[in-house]
Design a protein around this nucleic acid. Structure first.
Lengths: 152, 152
DNA sequence: TTCAGTAGGTTTATTTTATAAACTTATAAG
DNA sequence: CTTATAAGTTTATAAAATAAACCTACTGAA
């Protein structure tokens, strides 16, 4: 399998990675979630090649993860904004944050604190079951393949 | 910034991606979570270059995500097993699954069903707050940077 | 009215990675 | 003594990443 064939796999992980699995894409999404929106802002924040920023943003736009909007005319300048589909990636980002916090935080704690305004506490991401609301561990789950959803 | 400098960033997303952000790594982890353990098994499942499988497994081992264990002698053959640190990546994988299910499932539903044995229902991943237990939306959160944890 | 600066890119050349295919080592089975 | 298996490594080539320069369209200052 080649990388560009990922999108055609009958696997939701593969399909997701086909959109956000390229190098730097998740870092760009992090910046967008933190409020960055302009090309220069993202490029300077990450200090990566402009080529890559341009290519990744274009892919994210064609996949419906971000929308490109003109924020001024003469000359026309654009900014990038997460769509609802992009906002849906929040749990992915927070899961990455939590694992990094768990395994790479220093004595002074994690570099960024996430605050839940609704309950008023600093929090970390907990994966729970959509049906019973309890935290889920991989030891308590099993997977079932759906033949009708697998055309290959 | 270059890709190999990611690990040194004061960001838990960056630190996490430095371990699991390379091309194919999350697909290899998927296979490990689904029960694969041998080199050949993983390589055949993904049908990717043996070079990449070897390199990724070596990195995951040095990062403590998997452990390499001999499962037979004469000749010695090895298998790869997720460590507790690797098991901790379950929420990351499930978040990827859920996004793929949300946005790329066909009429017949997602290709793989996840069953929560404790409650007896098929489920999807829900991100909740570690403090109040409620589902978390990015609109209800704010971030705070911790200067002491940021040496740069 | 020319010069520097800003924003959002594209182009070009070079380095790094990915990929495919063949090869290696150690052994068992036929 | 040939074929097969498993777990890699090596080699050559293709694709992607990276750095740096360039382009377009303006604004504001000298």
């Amino acid at each position: 399998m080649k990388w560009h064939e990922l999108a055609g796999q009958e696997c939701s992980i593969a399909r997701t990675l086909a959109v956000i699995g390229d190098r730097w894409t998740l870092m760009i999404l992090r910046d967008l979630f933190l409020g960055a929106s302009r090309f220069e802002e993202i490029q300077r924040s990450l200090d990566i090649s402009r080529t890559i920023v341009a290519e990744r943003l274009t892919l994210l736009e064609t996949k419906g993860v971000v929308r490109r909007l003109a924020y001024q005319q003469k000359p026309t300048r654009y900014k990038y904004k997460l769509t609802p589909k992009g906002i849906d990636l929040y749990p992915v980002l927070m899961a990455l944050v939590h694992w990094g916090d768990q395994h790479y935080a220093t004595e002074v704690g994690p570099p960024v604190i996430h605050h839940h305004q609704r309950c008023g506490h600093d929090f970390s991401a907990v994966l729970t079951c959509s049906e019973c609301g309890e935290p889920v561990s991989p030891y308590e789950t099993e997977v079932r393949f759906v033949p009708e959803a697998i055309t290959a």
